[in-house]
Nucleic acid binder design. Structure first.
Lengths: 156, 156
DNA sequence: GTCCAAAACTTGACTCGGTCCAGATTGTGT
DNA sequence: ACACAATCTGGACCGAGTCAAGTTTTGGAC
């Protein structure tokens, strides 16, 4: 049961509690899960957690750079533990499945913008939207899960 | 008062109503505004609109590709009328100001991902996060508007 | 010009993701 | 073992957005 999670927390000045350990492990086992899904997962392991503990822990861990939060349009925030490599995401408009994807252009290329308006840019967030193989072969009508557009149609 | 908005709507098979004209004009005059801000603006012109009419109209216009919706993490959806050129956005973590920005790599480069997992990719959404000149010269403490992280600190 | 069906609008209730608060509990340094 | 700060709990709350039912407007046909 010693998977290094505890020492990782300690090393970052975060108190190690049952909830936090369980939450970190849940993120590892379900990358790209929402806070709610993680809470569910944690409950199957720990028995119970409050919603607040989950949000608080995720917030702390994101601040400490142990987790990364992704917030795609039209969906709740999702969390993953792959941090520090500036990778991007590919999301299906049909079923909302999400894949990690490496940057096409090389290493951290996206941090360079044509005209930075004097900004100090620290992150380039890239999301590719499309349709996964399964959803491509499905008639556009019966789409399972909420597309990011408001009113039904989700063609581009 | 004939700014072509009406014919633009008609040309796209959208009925031209007072609300819709006002909403389109509001988007032109306040790019990157939220639905609420647009409703306010429309009210100063038209007198009154329901929230629902605003959401509905914006939804229709986005579907018709006359507007583009941007949904940055930690903020309500914003709308702009610059469509079809695959430009990106630069947002200040301090004050949430948002700038348009052209793609660094050329024309629609972002649609090419390293490994597309068999997806049919139709859009690459790119958001640069940073701090604008004004906010850079401000002590990190007193930040005006909600940063996209949950719990206060918004360093990377 | 009038009529009418479809489209659009209004109002109000509701959902969902997330935050705030106050009090109880727990982890940790001494 | 103790004390205290950090954390957790439960419940109220908030903002953005959606749903549903009923009313008004638009625009094409006569």
């Amino acid at each position: 049961m010693t998977d290094g999670v505890e020492s990782l927390l300690r090393a970052n000045g975060v108190r190690s509690t049952a909830q936090r350990l369980a939450i970190m492990r849940a993120v590892s086992s379900q990358p790209h899960a929402t806070a709610d899904q993680l809470a569910e997962e944690v409950r199957t392991v720990i028995g119970t957690v409050s919603r607040q503990a989950v949000y608080d822990t995720l917030g702390v861990l994101v601040d400490k750079n142990l987790l990364r939060r992704i917030q795609p349009a039209g969906s709740a925030a999702r969390y993953e533990n792959r941090v520090g490599d500036n990778h991007h995401h590919l999301i299906c408009r049909g079923c909302s499945t999400m894949f990690d994807i490496d940057c096409a252009v090389g290493t951290r290329p996206c941090l360079v913008a044509d005209d930075d308006h004097g900004f100090e840019i620290d992150e380039a967030e890239v999301i590719y939207w499309g349709r996964c193989p399964a959803c491509r072969s499905t008639p556009a009508e019966n789409l399972g899960i909420a597309p990011p557009t408001q009113s039904g149609s989700n063609q581009i």
